[in-house]
Amino acid sequence: MSPLRVAIVGFGKIARDQHVPAIATTEGVELVAIASRNASLPGVPHAATLDELLHDGPEIDAVALCTPPQVRHAQAAMALAAGKHVMLEKPPGATVAEITPLVTAARAAQRTLFATWHSRFASAVDPARQLLAGRKVISVKITWKEDVRVWHPGQAWIFEAGGLGVFDPGINALSILTRILPQPLFVTSADLAFPANRDAPIAANLALSDAEGLKITAELDFLQTGPQSWDIDLDTNGGPVTLSMGGARLRAGGAQLVDAADAEYAGLYRRFRELTATGESDVDLAPMQLVADAFLLGRRRTVEPFEDVP
């Protein structure tokens, strides 16, 4: 079988740190081009825009869209119209509704649309799902706190409308939660802290539930200095269960069950390769819907302005 020839569109920190090495170590996937106005990779053909790449670049089978979510819909539609498979970095777009026409376009073109949730591919997530399948979950506490200046330096788009703010990392926790729990979840309340000079929140506290009244709380913060916190603590009828380090570690019954190196993006590309072999799509919008509902229900508080350089 011929390798899947992939072009990365948007070449920022995540593309460099995660997508490039994942492609390099995934059998049957090959990086053949970069499209970016501001960055390139030595030895890899480069175009300034996706349009230029599609018209004048090397032959490709698929694009991985790593651009800000505000522009992803138009790029995905262009790539699908050109007969290319499309991988969407998370979140899949700036809104929930804009993804549905892309699903329709992918089906019509018999091409794959893959809305990725990389945290679901963390090493401990599926083991946690299997463990919880035999237990009753009593309550859940999410603590997802990181330093935006470390992980998104100079990326002003993340605090613009459609950029999600603290929900850019926070949606990772929600993607894990909607994977490991068996019933659909919904937001019951939200408190959102907006810097006075920004259009997206820098912190949030959420309450969620399911049809059986499960109590779920989430504390999200984009100003955490020192050790970073990416933890999901579950109280179950079989004792406490903890997913930590963004889903890389699983602890239950006083024992460390999983403690593995980061393999999330390699898992994404293996899945993308599987999907493109048949033209099947994989688009789960549950995490995005929870974020949208948090914005709908959220009580907005204005806090001090945020500057990228403290």
Rank of each mutant, 00 (worst) to 15 (best):
L206Y: 04
Q75R: 12
L53R: 08
Q110L: 11
E264F: 06
N38I: 04
K215Q: 14
G226F: 01
A108Y: 00
T188A: 02
D191E: 15
A252Q: 10
I8D: 04
D233A: 15
A39Q: 09
G246L: 06
R72F: 01
G28L: 13
A106K: 09
E219D: 15
L174T: 08
D221E: 11
E59M: 13
Q224I: 08
P195L: 05
S123L: 12
T116Y: 09
E89W: 02
I23L: 12
L50H: 11
K84D: 11
A106E: 05
K145T: 06
N237T: 09
L223T: 13
G213V: 09
P58M: 09
S229L: 15
P69V: 08
Y265W: 15
R120F: 02
R301K: 15
V140L: 07
L206K: 03
T242V: 13
D231R: 13
V9K: 12
Q130R: 14
A173S: 07
A35W: 05
A35V: 12
I34V: 06
L41S: 10
L31G: 05
G247S: 01
P201Q: 12
I176K: 09
A77P: 00
V283G: 05
P91E: 00
K136L: 14
E52T: 02
D259Q: 12
T26N: 11
I142M: 08
S139L: 03
P227S: 05
W230Y: 15
W157E: 01
I216C: 00
I14P: 00
V166W: 01
T67L: 02
K90W: 01
A77T: 05
Q18Y: 13
L214Q: 06
V150F: 06
A105Y: 09
V148Q: 13
R5N: 05
G170M: 03
I216K: 07
A266H: 08
G170K: 10
R249Q: 14
L297M: 10
G12K: 09
R5A: 12
T116N: 10
E59W: 06
A156Q: 14
D51M: 03
T112Y: 04
G12L: 12
I8T: 05
R198L: 13
G10N: 01
F272C: 03
L243S: 07
H46P: 09
V20D: 07
L50S: 09
N172K: 09
N205Y: 14
A108F: 01
R251F: 13
E219Y: 06
A203Y: 06
N237Q: 06
A22H: 02
G43I: 00
D199M: 13
I60T: 02
E264K: 03
H19W: 03
A33C: 04
A161H: 14
Q289M: 14
E98T: 00
K13N: 13
V32I: 07
A82I: 08
C66R: 07
T188Y: 11
H73W: 12
H118Y: 13
L54H: 09
L54P: 11
F222K: 10
T217C: 11
E304P: 02
T178F: 10
P21R: 08
D17N: 13
Q228G: 10
A64T: 12
V29A: 12
P58S: 08
L102I: 02
R270G: 14
A255S: 07
T95Y: 01
T67F: 06
K13A: 11
T95D: 01
A15N: 00
P240L: 04
P287L: 02
F272Q: 08
